[in-house]
């Protein structure tokens, strides 16, 4: 879907039109943005410089194009406060942000530049509890703005927290799709575990998984 691998069967339909993506850039043109585990962020640079990296706003002074810092700073602060992140200032370095906050910056950057479909590749995998909840809250906010989110995760609880529709994939094969409310958390968990009963394991762990 992000344009990295071409589909072997089936079709991708964007706004009622069938699309073929040859590379990630095609997908981005169609409004599908992917936020990778390896974030496209540079720790030594400020949040606003990172936010607009590759899409810098410019203004012309005496015929020469200059980087419009004021506009970039203002837009960044707006986008960040909308996501509930308090920055010291737009010139704060990304390196001082936590992993969850960096995810949020990456997500809101994708949304700012017109993404209609957002693919998040395990945004919560390396995060602590508090940071995870921040990212989940961000996903919720983005969804409420009308952006479709494809949220890839290994954690049932994270999926249940924000998901409307669940699809379990194993080695490229779908194990089934269910709507929210049609499936119990236990069933979903079993499906994700590859169909094996987790009962024995769960018993020994006291139901904490």
């Amino acid at each position: 879907m992000s344009g990295v691998v071409k589909p072997t069967q089936g079709e991708i339909i964007v706004n009622g039109e069938q699309k073929f993506f040859n590379n990630p850039r095609d997908a981005m043109q169609a409004g599908i943005a992917t936020v990778h585990q390896h974030l496209a962020m540079i720790p030594l640079m400020s949040v606003s410089r990172n936010f607009f990296l590759g899409n810098e706003p410019t203004k012309k002074i005496a015929g020469i194009q200059f980087f419009d810092r004021k506009y970039a700073d203002r837009k960044t602060m707006e986008a960040m406060s909308k996501m509930g992140i308090n920055l010291r200032g737009p010139d704060q370095a990304v390196g001082t942000l936590s992993g969850g906050e960096r995810q949020t910056v990456a997500i809101s950057r994708a949304v700012h530049f017109g993404a209609q479909v957002l693919i998040l590749d395990e945004p919560t995998s390396a995060l602590g509890v508090r940071q995870t909840s921040n990212v989940l809250a961000t996903i919720d906010k983005v969804r409420n703005e009308g952006v479709a989110v494809v949220f890839i995760t290994h954690n049932v609880r994270h999926a249940l927290a924000v998901g409307d529709r669940f699809t379990v994939l194993n080695r490229g094969q779908t194990h089934g799709t269910a709507m929210r409310g049609d499936i119990t958390p236990e069933d979903l968990q079993n499906l994700m575990a590859g169909g094996q009963e987790l009962a024995t394991l769960e018993g020994s762990l006291g139901g904490t998984v």
Binding site: H38, L39, A40, M41, I42, P43, L44, M45, R49, F52, L53, G54, E56, T58, Q65, F66, F67
Partner: peptide, 17 residues
Amino acid sequence: TRFGNWIFASGGDAEAA
């Protein structure tokens, strides 16, 4: 300038840039 932003980015993390 935006080119300056690219200079920082190229040195900061070429892959991310």
